[in-house]
Design a protein around this nucleic acid. Structure first.
Lengths: 208, 208
DNA sequence: GTCTATAATTAGATAGAC
DNA sequence: GTCTATCTAATTATAGAC
C-alpha cells in the first residue's frame, strides 16, 4: 500500500509509543471494561499523559477498537503458528491440535475472554464491530475443522461447541486472582496450562 | 434471630425498595463491572433517585456485596432445589444432574459469570470477599460430588474440572448479544438451554 | 422513606507551549 | 511528539426539605 520510505527517528518513536499505549489499553479494558477503564489510567500504566492518548487515538472508542484488533490478531496468529508448526494431521488429531492451541493461546492472552464477557451482554456498536472484524473468522475456521473431524454434528452443533471450547478453555486463565484464592493453584503456571489444554482437548475430541 | 413482629407498611415498602435496587444492581454490575456501573444508572433502572440508593446501602461497595450475595444465594438455592427434586441417585447420575442443574441455573442467571470475570483478574478485597462468602461453598460441594462419581482424579483435578464446567456451562449465556450476532442463535431460547445442559453434562460425566 | 440540591472528585476531550 | 492546563460533563457521597 505505502512506499517503504526510511523511517525517521520520530516515526519509530510514534510507532513505539502507540504500541505501548495499545498494550496498556488491552490490559486496562480487559480488567475494567470499556466504561470502567479511564484513558488516564491507561496513560499512567505506560508512562505517558492522558492528552497524548487522545492525540494518538482520537478518542476512547477508537482506542478500544485498536486494542481489540491487536488482541485478536495476536491470538489468531498464535493459534495458526502453533497448528501449522506440526506435521500434516488427519482430521481428528488436527482438531485436537486446534483445541490445544486455543487453550494455550487463551492462557497467554486471558484478556480475550474478558473483552468478550465485558462487552457481550449488550448489542451495541462495539459488539457488532467485535464480531465482524475479529471473532467471525475464528468461529468459522473452528466450525470447518470440527465438522471435518466429526466433532460437530446434528446433536452437537457448532454454536454450542464453540462456546463450550471457549468457556472451558479460557475461564480459568481469565480469573487468575479468583482461581488462586479459591483453589490455591496459579493458572499462569506452565504445568497447569499444559494440563488444562490436555483435558479440554481430550474432552472435546476424545482419543478413541 | 429476630422476633417476628407484624410488618408495618413502611417495613414492607423498605423491603420491596431494597429488593428492586438489588435486582437493578445485579444487572448493572454484571453488565458494566464495579467501576463501570454508576449508582445513578442503578437508581434509574428501578425508578428511584441516586440519593435513595445511598440511603439504603450506605455506599457503592456495600451495594455490590449485597448484590453478589443475592446472586449467589439465588444460584445455590436453584441448584439445590433442582438436584433434590429428583429421586435419590447413584453417584454418576447425581454428578450428571449437578452439572445439568448448574448449566440451567447459569442460563437463568448469566450475571454470575459476568461478576466472576469482571472482578476475577485483580486480587482485591472484592475478590476475597466473593470467594469466602459465596464461591467456596459451590466449589466444595462440586468437588465432593465429582470425586464420588469418579470424574475427578489425579489426571483431572478439581481445580481444572470446576472451571471447565463453569466456563463450558455458562459462557454462552453470559454473552447473549455476541452469540446472537455471531451464530444467529438466541441463548435464552429454551431448546438451546436444554441442549447446552445435555452436551456439557455428558461431556463431563459420559454415560458409558 | 423519598426527593432535591450540592460538595468534592474524576471523567474525556481540546488548546496551546515547547 | 509530548506535556500542562483547562473546559464540560458525570461521578459518589452528604445534607436538608417533605
Amino acid at each position: 500500500m505505502k512506499a517503504d520510505k526510511p523511517l525517521t527517528s520520530r516515526d519509530r518513536q510514534r510507532i513505539e509509543t502507540r504500541r505501548r499505549i495499545i498494550e496498556a489499553a488491552v490490559a486496562t479494558f480487559a480488567e475494567r471494561g470499556f466504561h470502567g477503564a479511564s484513558t488516564r489510567e491507561i496513560a499512567g500504566r505506560c508512562g505517558v499523559t492522558q492528552g497524548l492518548v487522545t492525540y494518538h487515538f482520537k478518542n476512547k472508542d477508537n482506542l478500544w477498537r485498536r486494542a481489540a484488533e491487536h488482541l485478536f490478531a495476536t491470538m489468531l496468529d498464535g493459534i495458526r503458528a502453533r497448528v501449522d508448526r506440526g506435521a500434516p494431521h488427519e482430521p481428528r488429531s488436527l482438531a485436537r491440535e486446534v483445541v490445544r492451541a486455543y487453550v494455550l493461546m487463551a492462557a497467554e492472552h486471558p484478556e480475550l475472554m474478558r473483552f468478550m464477557v465485558q462487552e457481550g451482554s449488550v448489542d451495541d456498536e462495539r459488539v457488532q464491530w467485535l464480531i465482524e472484524h475479529c471473532e467471525r473468522m475464528l468461529y468459522q475456521s473452528f466450525g470447518g475443522i470440527m465438522t471435518l473431524a466429526g466433532v460437530i454434528d446434528g446433536e452437537r452443533p457448532a454454536h454450542h461447541l464453540y462456546y463450550v471450547m471457549a468457556g472451558a478453555g479460557s475461564l480459568i486463565f481469565s480469573i487468575p486472582a479468583l482461581c488462586r484464592r479459591l483453589t490455591g493453584v496459579d493458572p499462569s503456571d506452565a504445568e497447569i496450562i499444559e494440563r488444562h489444554a490436555d483435558i479440554v482437548a481430550r474432552l472435546l475430541v476424545p482419543e478413541v
